[in-house]
């Protein structure tokens, strides 16, 4: 049985550290924390070390901390920090742990959050370490799916776009393996899910198929998870123009989908979802961003020993 004590003081580094029951426990906590307005974290300080900018993640954590009565300190760019003066990450962490009750870290190097956690005496939350992990984003994605679909088990999830470089996609496909999901992976051939990940899915007997067109595969989709295809990935600008049009979702296409389909996107979006889709009742990507606050409230609360239960 998972309990609150499993989370108190814990580091949140990689989704691989969380099993099915722990994930469900976290999502349940997010349900409770969504409406939580008591200053449970009054007097608590989160120290945000953002060695590269990420406005959304930072704002989402600041909002979560603020809504629970705590506050956030920190910097938002490596250039102005001690890193520019040649200080090691280990030293920065050892200094900052004295300033906060937990550390939020975003860093371009893979594995940096785990390293920070080794040196910190307070819990560390990974807010993105290079191409490696961004676990709270994955929790938000799962939470959104459960909220929008009213269940998490046995969903058919269609991933569309850049599946090769998309960190959010990598974490999410492996995590969905805990929930008996059926995955359809739609991407240009050179932006397929990496081979090692496909092998991992096979070994774990996760049901997945690959496709190169969106339209034929969305009829029974419960979730369509769209990601941005970046121009930088293409050597040929013409190929980019073709791909950008081929891997977008519009209202005509959505007529072929189930009425209850949830459309997710980690944002920011560019062309892959045109504004006409925004009014679709199940265009969930802005709600997804908002759920981020509830999920992060739950994480902050649990790590700092507040379960958010109704104590009345």
């Amino acid at each position: 049985m998972v309990s609150n004590s499993d989370f108190v003081g814990r580091d949140i580094i990689s989704v691989g550290d969380f099993g099915r029951e722990e994930l469900l426990f976290l999502l349940d906590a997010a349900d409770r924390f969504e409406s939580e307005t008591r200053p449970l974290l009054a007097g608590k300080v989160a120290a945000a070390l953002f060695f590269e900018p990420s406005t959304r993640t930072r704002l989402s954590f600041e909002s979560a901390m603020g809504r629970l009565g705590g506050c956030c300190i920190g910097f938002a760019e490596g250039g102005v920090s001690s890193q520019a003066k040649g200080e090691t990450l280990a030293d920065t962490v050892r200094v900052v742990e004295g300033y906060g009750d937990l550390i939020l870290i975003r860093h371009p190097r893979e594995g940096s959050a785990r390293l920070a956690a080794e040196f910190a005496g307070v819990p560390v939350v990974n807010c993105g370490d290079g191409a490696h992990q961004h676990p709270t984003q994955t929790f938000v994605d799962l939470y959104t799916m459960r909220r929008e679909c009213k269940r998490l088990d046995g969903l058919h999830v269609v991933f569309v776009g850049d599946l090769r470089y998309g960190r959010t996609v990598h974490s999410l496909v492996t995590t969905l393996g805990h929930f008996d999901a059926r995955l359809t992976l739609v991407s240009p051939s050179f932006l397929r899910l990496p081979k090692e990940l496909r092998r991992e899915l096979q070994e774990r007997e996760v049901d997945f198929t690959e496709a190169q067109k969106v339209e034929p595969v969305i009829a029974d989709a419960d979730v369509i998870y769209v990601t941005r295809i970046q121009r930088e990935r293409f050597t040929d600008p013409l190929e980019f123009e073709k791909a950008k049009d081929a891997f977008r979702i519009d209202n005509t296409m959505l007529h072929k989908a189930q009425p209850g389909v949830a459309i997710l996107h980690p944002l920011p979006r560019v062309n892959e979802i045109p504004p006409e889709v925004d009014s679709h009742p199940h265009a969930a990507y802005f709600r997804q961003a908002h759920y981020g606050v509830a999920v992060r409230k739950a994480i902050l609360g649990l790590l700092l020993g507040q379960a958010g239960e109704d104590t009345a």
């Binding site: 090691t88 190097r109 893979e110 594995g111 940096s112 785990r114 390293l115 370490d129 290079g130």
Partner: peptide, 14 residues
């Protein structure tokens, strides 16, 4: 050495 050139260990020299 970790095979991943983007790994933090190369920068931190741990």
């Amino acid at each position: 050495r970790c095979v991943n050139p983007s790994c933090i260990v190369h920068e931190e020299r741990v």
